[in-house]
Write a protein that binds this DNA or RNA. Structure first.
Length: 563
RNA sequence: UGCCGGGUCGUCUAAUGGUAGGACAACGCCCUUUGGAGGCGUCUGCGGAGGUUCGAAUCCUCCCUCGGCAGCCA
């Protein structure tokens, strides 16, 4: 961002962020929409929202906010066989959590069904739509191919009166599923297959989660979507690239109807490496129990990321970072991780927790002495204050912070070596105790009383500082470590995507130890386990008796990555 | 051999006929009682070939290449 202030040009928030802002700024200049800007997010309630939807929500809501326009949340509930109330509820919850405000503009496409029906009658009367008797197989067979035109249905020439009558009977429920359809009369030879007399209504005898049994004919996406946008006076109907080929149809319907006509604009959907982003695949992971639900912390769903410990701020920042363009992209997950680290670093309470404990005994420290040592809650934010942590003769440190035969450059604890215990003393490893298998089970160390943290009396310097917990006061907890859900970057084109599930995507440690202050941890809090990463209480499995922590993300590690 | 839309550092994204820049990643140095954070620095890119122009990522032509489309899904 430069410091130039060009009076007369769009303000900071409305200036060109991407090609869509460019279009909107042009529209504003030409007064195309009388100064109105109105966007929408139109999910089908057939699954939970994922981070790709978050990108779209942020885009649409961001535009409304930046241009002082309006934003609608609209459910595109036109297919009762795939949609459920549970999904409606989760989508509203996730959208709100993301921070979007739609005030009273929560809409349902199904509330427009009667209006759509009347529009369809208008098209029939104009000779632009007809009831077709062809079944699904026949329609497919007569659609032609990518390189050959289709054939016209014999019903194409039905009279307007007959079409009107038949359509009424369709609505009345006098036909079985699939027996008849209403089709637009466009062009069976169009090089764009979407224009080869597309279906507007199909018969589905099924209970709609909102409309009950009021309807047995349901509008298809192509027919319904432009109408929804038109009814709501949307100005910019933003959707993903796969609808590009549908735009001529979107325009055709609205032009033939002669009604308010929003502009459809397509952008590239978000893809993240090492995960999947299609609702179909996510549903399969849930249904077949590869994960413990839509909100499994390994899922790229908004609810999964939330349970994992991601903040809505981080998600919004990420959406901003990935940008908006028309080219297909596969975004590196490290971009997301940067956003969450960046956010949590500023506000997460620091705490000491030992994931894989190794006992140490300070042989020269008094048997029953307990010191209360002062620790900083967040070095990034002094306002977060300080706390005391207990220190005593028997402690636990991280197993990985001691190596008997260390590699070059390792500056933690080694036999005969010294290291600082965070907020406490410098200790020296005097003796290594092993079990019959030769595994290190305990260290005998001595501490240097002159090196107490904060006293400034020590001239001694050590290269490493490690975290620890006091054995007596430490609280045993369960910790869940997550890794990428899949082992390969790009699963988009692979039919055997399930073969690439990462068997180590979840690791459960049931005997981790945390400092006593964590007894009071609350669900929704973001906490940094020093040197280990950011964690949060698991909203599903954590109980008062057994705290369960999820690792949101590790800290950036410039040591292990070096090896 | 159809139609539509794309190809800029490893990744994402700017530059709209006038010095190819930012972020992430990586690497190096400094600093550090988190091998965190922070600071400084380095690194690498216009798919190709022609053309127009004083000047092309940008305009034109051809080629290569990637994605989407043949649901009564969205």
């Amino acid at each position: 961002m430069s410091e130039q202030h060009n009076t007369g040009l769009p303000s900071e928030s409305t200036k060109k962020k991407n090609f869509i802002y460019e279009i909107i700024n042009e529209d504003l200049e030409t007064n195309k929409w009388n100064g109105n800007i109105h966007t929408r997010f139109p999910p089908e309630p057939n699954g939970y929202l994922h981070i790709g939807h978050a990108k779209s929500i942020c885009l649409n809501y961001g535009i409304a906010k930046d241009f002082q326009g309006k934003f609608n949340l609209r459910f595109d509930d036109t297919n009762p066989s795939k949609e459920e109330q549970e999904y409606v509820d989760s989508i509203i919850e996730d959208a709100k959590w993301l921070g979007v405000e739609f005030e009273d503009r929560l809409f349902f496409a199904s509330d427009y069904f009667e209006q759509m029906y009347q529009f369809a009658i208008g098209l029939i009367k104009k000779g632009k739509a007809y009831v077709c008797d062809l079944n699904a197989d026949e329609i497919r067979a007569t659609r032609g191919t990518l390189t050959e035109p289709g054939e016209e249905s014999a019903d194409r020439s039905r009279s307007i009166e007959e079409n009107l009558d038949l359509f009424q009977h369709m609505r009345n429920g006098e036909f079985k599923n699939g027996e008849k359809t209403l089709r637009a009369k466009i062009d069976m030879a169009s090089p764009n297959i979407n224009l080869r007399d597309p279906i507007m209504y199909r018969i589905v005898h099924e209970t709609h989660q909102r409309q009950g049994n009021a309807w047995c004919i349901y509008p298809t996406y192509d027919w319904a979507h432009g109408l929804e946008d038109s009814i709501e006076k949307i100005t910019h109907s933003i959707c993903t690239l796969e609808f590009e080929n549908h735009r001529p149809l979107y325009d055709w319907f609205l032009n033939e109807l002669g009604i308010y006509h929003p502009q459809q604009i397509e952008f590239a959907r978000l893809n993240l490496n090492y995960t999947v982003m299609s609702k179909r695949k996510l549903l399969q992971l849930v249904k077949e129990n590869y994960v413990d639900g839509w909100d499994d912390p390994r899922m790229p769903t908004i609810s999964g990321l939330r349970r994992r410990g991601y903040s809505s701020e981080a998600l919004r920042d990420f959406a901003e970072t990935v940008g908006v363009a028309k080219r297909d992209a596969l975004t590196d997950i490290s971009l997301l991780e940067f956003s969450i680290r960046n956010d949590l670093n500023k506000r997460a309470q620091r705490v000491m927790a030992v994931l894989r404990p190794l006992k140490i005994v300070l042989t020269n420290y008094p048997e029953d002495k307990v010191e209360e040592l002062e620790a900083v809650n967040n070095p990034e934010d002094a306002a977060m204050g300080k706390r005391n942590i207990p220190f005593s003769r028997e402690l636990f440190i991280e197993q990985t912070d001691f190596i008997e035969n260390p590699p070059k450059g390792f500056h933690r604890l080694v036999p005969g070596g010294e290291v600082r215990l965070r907020y406490a003393y410098i200790i020296k490893c005097d003796k290594v105790i092993k079990n019959e298998n030769g595994e290190v089970v305990e260290l005998r160390c001595s501490f240097d009383p002159e090196t107490k943290s904060g006293t400034g009396t020590s001239a001694k310097k050590v290269k490493g500082t490690i975290h620890w917990v006091s054995a007596l006061q430490a609280v045993p907890v369960e910790v869940r470590l997550y890794d990428r859900l899949f082992t390969i970057e790009n699963l988009a084109s692979d039919e055997n995507w399930l073969n690439f599930l990462n068997p180590h995507s979840l690791e459960i440690i049931d005997d981790a130890l945390v400092e006593p202050s964590l007894q009071n941890a609350k669900i929704g809090e973001h906490i940094q386990f020093e040197r280990n990463g950011y964690f949060c209480l698991d909203s599903k499995f954590s109980t008062q008796e057994k705290l369960v922590f999820n690792r949101t993300v590790t800290l950036k590690d410039s040591w292990t990555s070096k090896k």
